[in-house]
Amino acid sequence: MKRHQLILQQLQEQKHVQVPALCEALNVSAVTIRKDLKLLEEKGLLFRTHGGAALESPYIKDRPVNEKELLHVTEKTAIVMAAVRLIEAQESIIIASGTTMLALARALPAQLPLTVITSALNVGIELLRHPEIEVLQLGGYLRHSSSSVTGPYAEQVLTDTSCSKLFLGIDGIDLDFGLTTTNMGEARLNQQMIRAAQETIVLADSSKFGRRGFGRICGLDQVHRIITDAGISRHDAQRLEEQGIQLTIT
């Protein structure tokens, strides 16, 4: 059916689509589109999501950090180099957890004087090699899968701090639902990090778009800048810029 072909074509271009946009593009009702999406899902051609569809399953499972570290290495490298250029000497910044945050810590210049707050044990250990960087390592319950801490102790410390920038890694970006991670405790800690920072900068490769983790961190209205790679769809890039988010594509 030609309508099905057009739906799949839009999915290939955008990675995920919404029912209202398909209704407008194909001039049919929402009931018709939902039936089309159900049929295409049964054929294994897409995954239905809340209000639309995606090429890949939108729901993310937690995976060990050493496994995630092997994914999208080239893209992460370019993303963190763009992030490093935003950091100025003598700043106090927060580096959250995740493999992209570890890559950021590794990319920091050795002689750049900074104060860094981090929830990630591997980030803190990496920064020990930098004599000019003061590290405030947050404490709490250590997550084996991410080598990072969560819990009220870490959250309490952040209520007494104020930093210029938060560099945040996430598991999913849904343009309607917002930023997510696979762990609710980590989502709560990330929320407190956002409150403690003047600017929130998300580092995420393009595979994270159109996906959701279990714990919601925040809506996109709390994000100032996103750094991603050229795999982001034009549709997603346009929507982010329409919301006033500074977008850096590496």
Rank of each mutant, 00 (worst) to 15 (best):
A110Y: 14
A110G: 08
Q111I: 08
L114H: 04
V116H: 03
S119Q: 06
A120C: 12
L121Q: 06
L121R: 03
N122P: 02
V123H: 01
E126D: 07
E126T: 06
L127I: 02
L128G: 12
L128M: 15
L128H: 11
E132R: 10
E132A: 09
E134D: 14
E134M: 15
V135K: 04
L136W: 07
Q137P: 07
Q137N: 12
Q137G: 14
L138F: 02
G139R: 13
Y141N: 13
Y141M: 12
L142F: 13
R143S: 02
R143W: 01
H144V: 08
H144N: 10
H144D: 09
H144T: 06
S145D: 07
S145C: 10
S146F: 01
S147W: 01
S147N: 08
S147G: 08
S148N: 03
V149S: 00
P152L: 09
V157G: 02
L158T: 01
L158W: 01
T159N: 09
D160M: 10
T161V: 14
S162Q: 14
S164I: 11
S164T: 15
K165H: 13
L166S: 03
F167Y: 11
G169W: 00
G172L: 07
G172R: 04
I173T: 11
I173M: 12
D174M: 05
L175R: 09
L175G: 00
D176N: 14
D176Q: 15
F177W: 12
F177R: 12
L179H: 04
T180A: 10
T181A: 10
T182K: 01
G185A: 11
A187T: 05
A187N: 02
R188L: 15
L189W: 02
N190G: 10
Q192P: 06
I194M: 15
R195C: 15
A197Y: 00
A197M: 06
E199A: 12
E199F: 04
E199Q: 15
I201A: 04
V202K: 02
D205R: 06
D205N: 15
S206G: 07
K208E: 03
F209N: 00
R211W: 06
R212D: 06
R216P: 09
R216N: 13
